[in-house]
Amino acid sequence: MEELDTPDGYKAELIRGKIVVSPWSKLRYKKPMRLLRQQLEAHAPEGHDADVAPFLFSFAQSERAFGPDLHVADEAAFDADGRHADGEALSLVAELTSVSTIDADWQDKLDAYGRQVPVYLILDMQAEEITAFWDPSPQGYRSRTTVSFGKPLHVPAPFDFDLDTNGFTAQPAEDAIPE
């Protein structure tokens, strides 16, 4: 997978031992991703960095590697050589759903993240809702809450703040080219 050349505009992830190629985020997702990153950065644990850069995080126990839309991770995880950061370095991941990724975001990624990542946020761009999952366990997350965009969402420890979700709606421009 290290040498895999994907077409321009696509990323590759390892899901259940298979390489899955999907498109990068839609342009209209930039604003919600920026608003989310800025708020998370202000509340990130010491030594952790919030970013949307395309990095793969490996999850050895599930033979998976994901490139989340947004991640908050220990900066030390990026001091190593190679292309896969250890999923243990993550304090939070966030995914913005699209028609092509929604199943993986709600199933495969929820399963893998739910065993070790302290907080997982799913911004369901179709339903205009955000769900926070926390309290990982060997069986998956023990807790979750969902709110509509525009309402505050409490992001649990290690962040422990109320996320302002105003501005997360990613409506296409009136003159946008249809998908």
Rank of each mutant, 00 (worst) to 15 (best):
E174P: 15
I102Q: 08
Q39H: 08
R83Y: 12
T169D: 10
A53N: 00
R28H: 07
Y141P: 01
D162H: 09
L40E: 03
D164E: 02
E63I: 02
F78H: 00
H43S: 03
A112P: 10
A173W: 07
F78R: 05
P172S: 12
F55A: 15
P32K: 03
A112C: 07
E46S: 11
F78Q: 08
A77Y: 09
P152G: 08
D81I: 04
F149A: 00
E179I: 09
E179P: 14
K30H: 07
L4A: 15
H154E: 11
A173I: 00
F149Y: 07
V20H: 03
D86G: 01
P152I: 09
K26R: 12
T97C: 04
A89I: 00
E174G: 14
P32M: 04
E75Q: 11
H48Y: 07
A42V: 10
H154I: 02
F159W: 02
L14K: 07
D79G: 08
E75W: 08
L153M: 05
R34S: 11
S25H: 07
G150H: 09
D5G: 10
L56E: 14
P172Y: 10
G150Y: 04
D81T: 02
A65W: 12
E3T: 15
F66H: 03
F59Y: 11
V93T: 10
E3Q: 14
F161W: 00
T101H: 05
V117G: 10
P158A: 09
L96H: 07
P7A: 12
R34H: 06
E95V: 09
M125E: 11
F159I: 00
P172M: 06
S62E: 06
W24N: 15
P54H: 08
P178N: 02
G17M: 03
A12R: 12
H71Y: 12
L163H: 04
H43G: 06
I19P: 07
F55T: 15
A127T: 13
S58A: 13
A80I: 08
A44P: 11
R28P: 12
Y29G: 06
M1E: 01
D175P: 14
R83A: 15
H43C: 07
D81C: 04
D164S: 09
M1H: 06
L40K: 02
V147Y: 11
Q139H: 09
A53H: 11
